[in-house]
Write a protein that binds this DNA or RNA. Structure first.
Lengths: 206, 206
DNA sequence: TACTGTGAACCTATTCACAGCA
DNA sequence: TGCTGTGAATAGGTTCACAGTA
């Protein structure tokens, strides 16, 4: 299996999820182009790196294509659960306790943390909530791979550094802080302010 | 002012916020590299497109640099408020009603929408909440520019299409649905599942 | 006939390497 | 001396154009 270019990879992730939404048997690159705004040739080239050849003169077989993408990118559902945790159980973090959010995805939240012990005791969820002091031990013991960071901005850097030290594989950052980590840990910045700022900057293309 | 390359733009957005966090007078490209993981020459090249020349043999003057980036990208704070709305007031949407999230940013949430009238009547917030039927009229009347989409996945596509028709300038998509829009409206996909899936795929670099 | 898959051309982004400046 | 700013070289990503195929 050869290296998949970065941009291609990120488009394929989206494509896999899009294909899951289409209720047809086959789809052409022209149709995908219409739905996504990517050019037809780019879509064909992206798919060609999978070396799966599930297309023909009436398009790609959707289910086969979707599975090939998932397999190639290692984002298969069902195979095994990927263990995650939520760090910070304020209004936003608590909102993510709703299990339905992760239904149909390979991700399973198996722990929550907050430095306010009141919250970890009062909030209800289908998985255990711990005081922040247990962060390292629980992550280690349970083999948690990814973290959703939803603490106040002022605590974000500290918590992120602690998470990084545990050897976690990635952080979804719902705080407004820009995280700076020693270790090369992938971070997705997905706070409302970050998202809106990116949209705003996109405006200024010319 | 010339066109700023896409990748450069997105890094500069992050850099501006990072500079806001540093409590020093000056910073070198080496220091920024340490904090962000970007290469030194890339950082210098990014900054050079601003044509601001605020650097010297002891680095860049932080405040001057930050302001130059904001001005160039049109993401200045304070100047004018940028009006936004929240569509969908379930647990996640309701969590975003907390005003402190947007403090210190140019964004101001000035309306919320939900198709469940109960919610719009019961929830408390510092701005008015409307039934979803008023979406178009309120956005038009108030001159709302950006939307945060937090409805259930099943309603996401419909709502996004309605938002797009109003001529809104961008959508921060907190739903798990991949939005397909006729109009070329920028979308930031920031749902937990999307964020985690991207992290997972990043793993598979080689 | 209507599509995919792909070599080749083109364009965009990043790094190298060093002149120039405080 | 220690940095920035930038031309030139390189690497990465996208489109074109068309042969190949069901």
């Amino acid at each position: 299996m050869k290296e998949i270019p970065e941009r291609t990879r990120s488009r394929l992730v989206t494509l896999a999820r899009l294909l899951g939404q289409i209720k047809e048997e086959r789809v052409t690159s022209a149709k995908i182009s219409l739905l996504t705004g990517w050019s037809e040739s780019l879509i064909r080239r992206d798919i060609s790196v999978l070396e799966v050849n599930c297309g023909s003169s009436n398009g790609y077989r959707i289910e086969e294509l979707r599975k090939a993408i998932c397999k190639n990118l290692g984002i298969e559902c069902g195979q095994k659960e990927i263990k995650c945790c939520i760090v910070g159980l304020g209004r936003l973090g608590a909102a993510l306790l709703e299990n339905s959010i992760f239904e149909g995805s390979p991700f399973k939240i198996i722990a929550g943390f907050d430095s306010n012990v009141n919250r970890t005791e009062v909030l209800r969820s289908s998985f255990p909530l711990h005081p922040a002091s247990m962060l390292e031990s629980v992550i280690q013991k349970e083999g948690i791979e990814y973290a959703i960071l939803a603490v106040p901005d002022t605590a974000a850097q500290d918590m992120a550094a602690r998470l990084a030290k545990t050897g976690i594989k990635g952080i979804a950052n719902y705080t407004g802080a820009v995280l700076t980590l020693q270790e090369e840990i992938p971070v997705q910045n997905v706070s409302p302010v970050t998202a809106l700022t990116n949209l705003l900057a996109e405006q200024r293309k010319n």
